Amino acid sequence: MCNESVWAPVIPFIAPVAECHVVDHASANSLVQMAQQLLSNAPDRFALAGHSMGARVALEVYRQAPERVTRIALLDTGYMPLATGEAGQAEKDKRAQLLHIAQTQGVRRMASAWVQGMVHPARLSDAALIEAIVAMFERKSAAIFEAQIAALLARPDARPVLQSLNVPTLIACGDQDLWAPLAQHQAMQALAPQARLTVFADAGHMAPMEQAPAVAQALRNWLAA
């Protein structure tokens, strides 16, 4: 449900050293399809950064075409497939509840509920930031939200991809990311020990919008590695 707004605060810091393109996955309903679409429109060789679901797409891109990816950055994300048993059902239920709100009360109402746990607690009072996130979601439909939920619930196990990474790799997250916590990123680094792990202070899941200068500096360091 995110778009170029996530990266808008970061790109001005990156543009002097790299040509930047933000991918829109449209109504694709699988990570495999999203990766295929990205590859069909990308240069022959490129650096790839992804945030949240976008980082899962980035891992799928690397799975499909590792020879085309020169480096990879994975921000505020995860790597495991849907859990089995009660944990997996709890995730399905939570996503279904949000989808029901989007379908019956509108995407804006859903986003207003979703965002409460997605930024650093101190930023819940930042009206401009919260509005930017909610308005970003509101540009997408409940049908797109449903397609993206389907993609995430069917996500592949990315552990083999992490273990296979042999390009400069950045793994990063906000220190208060409750959706994709630091421990999850530390586990990712354990699978890809050559990766650099960076933690953004005073940031939640939406780190590129919450701490743009710090995120940009980490990406510039990654591009220069």
Rank of each mutant, 00 (worst) to 15 (best):
H100C: 07
L82V: 07
M34I: 08
L153T: 10
L197F: 02
I101Y: 01
P43F: 07
A180K: 01
P208R: 01
A190W: 04
G106S: 09
A132E: 11
L99T: 06
Q33W: 09
G204H: 02
Q64E: 08
D126M: 04
Q189E: 11
P168A: 15
A190E: 14
G85A: 09
N3E: 13
D24R: 06
R139C: 10
S164I: 02
A192S: 13
V17G: 01
A96G: 06
C173N: 02
D157L: 11
A132F: 15
A55K: 00
F145Q: 05
A201C: 09
M118W: 03
D93W: 03
F145T: 03
V61F: 02
R123T: 03
L74Q: 00
A90N: 11
F46A: 14
A8K: 08
L165N: 04
Q217V: 13
Q148K: 08
N166A: 15
A18P: 02
A192M: 11
A201Y: 05
H51F: 11
V215D: 00
L98S: 10
D44Y: 05
A154D: 07
S40I: 11
G204R: 01
Q189K: 12
A201V: 09
D157V: 10
L75D: 01
P12E: 06
Q97F: 13
R109I: 15
L182E: 14
V115D: 00
M53H: 03
A183Y: 08
L48R: 01
S40T: 14
A207C: 14
A132W: 10
D93N: 12
R56F: 13
K94M: 14
M53L: 14
R196I: 15
T77S: 12
Q105T: 05
I11L: 10
G174T: 05
A55I: 03
A35R: 00
A65G: 08
A203V: 10
M53E: 06
A8T: 02
V107Q: 03
H25L: 14
L170K: 00
I149D: 02
D175N: 07
A183V: 03
Q97L: 14
V32F: 11
T104E: 06
M1K: 01
P156Q: 12
Q194P: 04
Q36A: 13
A187E: 11
A192P: 00
P213Y: 12
R56K: 07
T104Y: 06
L124C: 06
L98T: 01
D157F: 11
G174R: 02
N166F: 05
L182I: 08
P193V: 13
V17A: 13
G204E: 04
Q37N: 13
V167R: 09
F200Y: 13
R220L: 15
E131V: 11
W222H: 11
I133V: 15
E4F: 08
Q148D: 04
S5W: 03
A42L: 10
M136P: 00
M209L: 12
G78A: 15
H185F: 05
A135P: 04
L59H: 00
D157W: 15
I133M: 10
Q37Y: 09
M136E: 05
E146A: 15
V199E: 04
P9F: 12
D175R: 08
K92D: 05
A55Y: 00
R71D: 02
L197G: 05
A147I: 09
M136K: 02
Q217N: 09
N3Q: 09
I101W: 00
N3P: 03
R45K: 09
L48P: 00
G78K: 00
M136D: 11
V107L: 06
R45L: 14
